[in-house]
């Protein structure tokens, strides 16, 4: 049976569109960057929970520094690595609000390790969204604490050498051991199925924060196709083949 496409494209037939809280500002991220997908999931969760007027996001330093340009909620832009400290104060001073940080691996796992661990240890009722793509994106592809052994970046051009640079840091395993965390999970957003799972994880974390259960961290193993010098499609494959071995998917803690 023939059906004109215009008979399908009607509001009543809508099954998917850009989240309402994601505005029309063109995103500065490179084509295929995982950040955009995670932004969409956060925007959807906030909308579905009906908490847009109560949510305050803390943006990091790094590629996601401009997260505040894309999701229509109030934002605070943090100094490099300090987002969990800022979130701590915002939540303590406004206990009924939803407070989350959005941080990359340089921000969270290098310069902000202390703030991260101590916010988790205090069991701050916040959500930490941790984008781990094994590289510094914004500054041009330097080595991160999470860079894989042998992985090439502009500051380890011959590959990460553990004798020189130490080992890839597994943050989720670290904060799982900290008593203040209630939910620690590692997700990805490279397939429709993984995206659906990641969204459920974000929703669960946001609900934990609103219920005062402690700190939730969602590590999202991501790609940086520009930094990795691959196409977005190839970067997803490379992530599955290489990143997932060191950073396995799934819940580490859910109490």
């Amino acid at each position: 049976m023939y059906m004109d496409i215009n008979d399908i494209i009607k509001p009543e037939n809508l099954v998917y569109t850009k989240p309402r809280l994601m505005n029309d500002n063109p995103m500065h991220y490179c084509p295929g960057c995982s950040h955009g997908v995670v932004h969409k999931l956060i925007a959807e969760v906030i909308d579905e929970m009906g908490i847009e007027e109560e949510t305050i996001g803390i943006a990091p330093v790094g590629c996601a520094v401009f997260a505040y340009n894309y999701i229509d909620i109030d934002w605070i832009e943090a100094a490099h690595g300090r987002a969990p400290a800022i979130a701590t104060a915002v939540k303590r001073l406004n206990p009924k609000k939803m407070v989350f940080t959005y941080q990359g691996d340089g921000d969270l796992a290098a310069i902000g390790t202390a703030e991260t661990i101590h916010a988790c240890n205090r069991g701050e009722n916040i959500v930490i969204i941790f984008i781990n793509n094994g590289i510094y994106g914004m500054t041009g592809g330097q080595m991160a604490p999470t860079t894989l052994e042998g992985m090439k970046t502009s500051t380890c051009p011959y590959g990460r050498n553990v004798a020189l640079n130490g080992y890839p840091l597994r943050i989720a395993e670290l904060v799982e051991r900290v008593d203040g965390t209630c939910y620690v999970t590692r997700q990805s957003v490279h397939t429709p199925a993984s995206i659906r799972k990641a969204k459920k994880a974000i929703r669960h974390a946001f609900e934990n924060a609103m219920a005062g259960k402690g700190t939730s961290m969602i590590e999202i193993v991501s790609t940086c196709n520009s930094g990795w010098k691959m196409t977005p499609v190839k970067a997803n494959q490379w992530m599955e083949e290489n990143m997932f071995a060191k950073y396995p998917m799934g819940d580490l803690k859910n109490v």
Binding site: R82, I86, A89, E115, H118
Partner: peptide, 17 residues
């Protein structure tokens, strides 16, 4: 706080509100 750095950033967070 865990450090003076964290403390001043908590101030930044509170002041932002």
């Amino acid at each position: 706080a865990e450090s003076e750095v964290a403390a001043i950033n908590m101030v930044y967070g509170g002041a932002s509100c």
